[in-house]
Design a binder for these strands. Sequence first.
DNA 1: TACCGTTATTATCTTAAGTTAATTTATTCG
DNA 2: CGAATAAATTAACTTAAGATAATAACGGTA
Lengths: 193, 193
Amino acid sequence: MENEIINFITGYISLTAEEVNIIKEQNLIKSYKKGTVLLSEGEFATECYFVLKGCIRSYYLIDGEEKTTEFYTENQSIRPVSYITNQPSEYYLACLEDCVVAIGSTERNKRLIEKLPRLESMIMQMNGDLLVQNQVSFDNFKHLSPEMRYLKLLETRADLFDRVPLYHLATYLGITAVSLSRMRKRISKSSTD
Amino acid sequence: MENEIINFITGYISLTAEEVNIIKEQNLIKSYKKGTVLLSEGEFATECYFVLKGCIRSYYLIDGEEKTTEFYTENQSIRPVSYITNQPSEYYLACLEDCVVAIGSTERNKRLIEKLPRLESMIMQMNGDLLVQNQVSFDNFKHLSPEMRYLKLLETRADLFDRVPLYHLATYLGITAVSLSRMRKRISKSSTD
DNA sequence: TACCGTTATTATCTTAAGTTAATTTATTCG
DNA sequence: CGAATAAATTAACTTAAGATAATAACGGTA
């Protein structure tokens, strides 16, 4: 189970066998039931996550409506904005399915970095990557029609359509559930004739 | 003129008088004529910028159409994605006005950081800030109507409306120039009656 | 299996954005 | 200054998204 984490890390920096062991013994793996809320608005995030199994959704509230900002599935890492900034969180994190998750807490990570200073460079790279991903997603979003965004998501993350309710995908796409439903009908119609 | 840069830095970390001097003597200030392109698609960014005077626009091309992603004005720093990732740039950077800019090149920054290691922590903070700003902008964009986005921009960056052509603001807002024009008329009408 | 809560679809109406093209208003510069 | 270019507006038409409400399909479970 820890192998996924090692694979993930070695995508950024190379590790010796001893270093692999240090990380493996450090890691803390937990299971959560579907519906568990890992982080709430107003709280300070003290943990970051690596999803081993399941799906975690981040979202925030506008007038009581949940707006989904991201879905995290197998082998994705979650570094809450609040974790990076040490500010109270604007976002929620909740399990859409039963989940198995590797957890890094602020203090344990600090200790780990003392043992393995090269992790610092990984973190900087991760921040850079996050930034770029976000920039590109934003630009795409801005200049693609809702329909294009839907088709693109269908290409890039087809699995989500099997495991996530459409109305969450709708807010993720920045449209209403009604509109998404209509759109799907429109598309299926036009592709058959 | 260098004082703006010092102010900017001390917003992140505190500096001793000697450190201030080191930075001041390091800095390289340049002027560019309106229209100058500082970075083109495909190039590797080797510089980051701090705007002392003027306005710089970043944009990219879709089917030959320019899509503006950001406007940088006085006292804003520009850290091109390509500079952070060492990948060829997807974006252009060009001066919308005559500009005065402080420039940090990769090598000079490296040398500077050797003298002032605490700058590292500033850079990490800047990356974190960038990430958060981007995240928040994205979320806002997704869940605000074009009209709301326009009104919000009018509040937060009113100066842009005096110095930037509307059709650039339009693509920045993710709409067409025609639509922006129509919208402005609609709003001015509804606010007078 | 029958029920209940959740999720998805459908219908109707309203509103605004995209597209294209023509026209007006500003700006620039020889 | 005036011609050329750039920027902004307007008009006409098409298309799709938002809102609201009603209905249908699905899923778990008692």
